[in-house]
């Protein structure tokens, strides 16, 4: 018994169910998507704008601005009319309006992670806190966020899709998360950067809760998933470059929260990484890939020495929420 080559059955089942949920949702609004009717097309456009523009406006500028954005999205998902670009729009204007908006919104959160968090790590927090709040009130959107995230970044499951017979190399690279176009496959650094962005967004989501929520229930997707993700990663054979990069990203963002939550058990995880898993990573690393490995090692040594993990940079503070 040792490390596995793929994720456990339960993980894969969960992953497949979510993909199925997303597919069904996509099918539900197919008529809206393929409509030729100009009027319906217009409506679709307004719905999409109402869902995606607020997400693109999320920034760390102030707590009150985030609240406004949150309220706008919540209103839309609750079927109430919202105003965007001077026009009023509501999901009640189409039988599948709600499904459409939920799908587009989820997709947008993930894209924002891929594009923005990738080049600007601290952006993960304001995006994640809004996503988490929406997830709490509208769990369907949460499932869709997961499904989109898993599709664009299988490591967020984590899942290492095997190459199936009959899949072309190009198609397989796409499944692994690479961008492939006429000019070829994207370079490794650019790929890693996007994957980092999405993992950082995920790591921020599982530790954050919308501060204005009045629900007393459990976090819709909380730190237990942080445990699950780490455990699942560490039970699998490491991949060169990818594993070190993403473990570091994940731990830097939610290591502090996990440490507080799981205490001794979390330190057992870190110790296992340092003493047994890290050598396995090193064994698959070549000289040109030492950057990610060194960053991870530095993080582990630092944490174990200080018996402490620093809170992540860019975390939203209580004074932020008063602004």
């Amino acid at each position: 018994q040792g490390l596995q080559n793929s994720a456990e059955e339960s993980t894969l089942k969960w992953y497949k169910e979510l993909q199925e949920t997303a597919n069904q949702c996509g099918q539900a609004f197919e008529d809206l998507n393929n409509t030729k009717d100009m009027q319906t097309k217009k409506l679709r456009m307004e719905l999409q704008k109402a869902a995606t523009i607020p997400v693109s406006q999320i920034s760390s500028i102030s707590g009150s601005q985030l609240k406004e954005i949150f309220d706008k999205i919540d209103k839309l998902l609750s079927g109430r009319p919202t105003v965007s670009g001077g026009k009023s729009v509501s999901t009640s204007h189409h039988p599948h309006g709600l499904e459409y908006v939920s799908y587009k919104l989820a997709e947008k959160f993930v894209k924002q992670g891929e594009e923005e968090v990738a080049s600007h790590h601290e952006a993960a927090f304001p995006i994640a806190v809004v996503a988490s709040g929406i997830w709490e009130l509208h769990p369907k959107v949460g499932d869709l966020i997961l499904a989109h995230l898993h599709k664009k970044c299988p490591y967020s499951v984590p899942h290492y899709p095997p190459m199936k017979d009959g899949t072309s190399m190009e198609e397989y690279q796409r499944i692994l998360g690479y961008r492939v176009d006429e000019s070829g496959v994207e370079v490794q650094d650019s790929f890693l950067k996007r994957m980092s962005g999405m993992i950082r967004l995920y790591a921020a989501i599982i530790q954050l809760r919308w501060p204005h929520s009045n629900k007393q229930g459990p976090d819709p997707h909380g730190l237990n998933h942080g445990w699950r993700w780490l455990a699942q990663m560490l039970n699998m054979e490491p991949l060169a470059d990818v594993t070190a990069t993403l473990l570091f990203d994940f731990l830097e963002v939610c290591g502090n929260a996990l440490m507080k939550q799981y205490q001794g058990q979390f330190w057992k995880l870190l110790l296992l990484i340092k003493e047994e898993y890290f050598p396995r990573i090193k064994a698959v690393t070549s000289a040109g890939q030492m950057g990610s490995v060194t960053r991870l090692n530095q993080f582990l040594e630092n944490s174990l020495r200080k018996k402490q993990i620093d809170p992540p940079k860019g975390q939203l503070t209580s004074s932020f929420w008063r602004s």
Partner: peptide, 15 residues
Amino acid sequence: FQALCNIYGAITIAQ
């Protein structure tokens, strides 16, 4: 301006 808003609604623009 309207066109710009439409573009913003349809594609993800980090900056």
